[in-house]
């Protein structure tokens, strides 16, 4: 599949006399293929919004290469801007205009037919409230308006930064369906979000960023598989048999962690091996459950942002690829 968006070695440094130098983007790479819904994940302050702003010409990069729809940006941005719909960070609109006026002015500036305004208002569910001033809108309604503004020009690439922020559960589901429908119609969607369950549900592929560098990327299933521990939980008919079972499995070279009512084994290719080994010693399994890894746990592992009891993690305390004292950053072949 051809790439709709390619970023190589993107760098952005903020210099401040008092606070010194901070690398917001430190050689960041990214690739989004056509027709996909691509998740863009990272902890707060990791560089997600800086990446999107740089891509859209709002921030000047200090180095690197960016290609949007086959054209190098920011040089060719005026040529491709009409095919890229975007919302960046929280939705911001002039509060005293109505939703219809807001979209109508954007449509005018972008030479989009006026009837498209009603189409997108219908699409995001704001048809009946379109005549009200934006300042009376809830955050969720502003979010819908932001999505409507991004969809106005029928983009080939849709970039959405936290589109589900402020939406009610029904709205989140509608947004999910909308993303899917848009992708099925051939639109590529780049979705930045902290709702990892949503990303896992609707994205084909992901990029995870931490401290300005890519720490993982690829199809969601592959990223999960690469970071799956292969652990299996075992319960026996009799809890008193657990010590014997531990001994049997350990002798067979399986890593076992004992718990009061079950065992956790790791490094097992086939769960059937476990049942066979135990059955040979008349130990009968009542539960054999592979432990599934989810995107949240992979994210927390890769970015080293899992909460630790008694500690208060600061915003910039996350995983940096190639950093000292960190583990698992580029595990499984992923990474920069």
């Amino acid at each position: 599949m051809p790439a709709v968006l390619e970023i190589e070695g993107l760098r952005k440094t903020y210099k401040n006399r008092r606070r010194g130098t901070r690398n917001a983007l430190d050689g960041f790479d990214m690739r989004v293929d056509a027709g996909q819904v691509h998740g863009f994940l990272g902890p707060n302050g990791s560089g997600k919004t800086t990446t999107l702003r740089t891509l859209l010409g709002l921030i000047r990069p200090d180095g690197g290469r960016m290609v949007l729809l086959g054209q190098e940006v920011p040089h060719a941005l005026p040529a491709v801007a009409g095919q890229v719909g975007a919302i960046v960070e929280s939705p911001q609109f002039f509060p005293h205009f109505t939703a219809r006026d807001t979209l109508s002015l954007l449509a005018g500036a972008g030479e989009v037919p006026a009837n498209r305004v009603d189409e997108v208002l219908e699409l995001v569910g704001l048809r009946d409230r379109a005549g009200e001033r934006v300042k009376t809108y809830s955050l969720g309604m502003k979010q819908r308006l932001a999505v409507a503004s991004a969809l106005l020009k029928k983009p080939k690439l849709l970039i959405l930064d936290e589109p589900a922020n402020g939406l009610d559960p029904g709205g989140i589901r509608e947004m999910r369906t909308l993303m899917r429908n848009l992708a099925e119609s051939g639109m590529t969607v780049l979705l930045s979000s902290h709702i990892l369950g949503e990303i896992q549900l609707i994205c084909d592929s992901v990029t995870i960023i931490s401290l300005g560098r890519r720490v993982a990327f690829g199809p969601v299933d592959e990223v999960l598989a690469q970071h799956s521990s292969g652990a299996v939980r075992i319960r026996l008919e009799a809890v008193s048999d657990l010590p014997v079972a531990t001994e049997v499995l350990t002798q067979a070279g399986v890593r076992v962690t004992g718990h009061p009512d079950h065992l956790m084994v790791a490094g097992v290719d086939k769960p059937a091996t476990v049942t066979r080994l135990l059955a040979e010693r008349d130990l009968y399994v009542s539960e054999l459950a592979p432990i599934a890894v989810d995107l949240e746990s992979v994210f927390l592992e890769l970015t080293a942002t899992a909460p630790v009891p008694g500690q208060h993690r600061q915003v910039d305390e996350s995983m940096k690829v190639g950093g000292t004292g960190q583990s698992g950053a580029a595990g499984g072949g992923w990474g920069a």
């Binding site: 859209l56 010409g57 709002l58 920011p74 941005l77 005026p78 801007a81 009409g82 890229v84 975007a86 960046v88 939705p91 911001q92 609109f93 002039f94 509060p95 954007l106 500036a109 972008g110 503004s149 020009k153």
Partner: peptide
């Protein structure tokens, strides 16, 4: 007001010049 309410940023997403 365009700058402070984010309207300018929205416009620049449509008209990058």
């Amino acid at each position: 007001a365009e700058w402070s309410t984010g309207g300018m940023m929205n416009l620049l997403l449509w008209r990058p010049r």
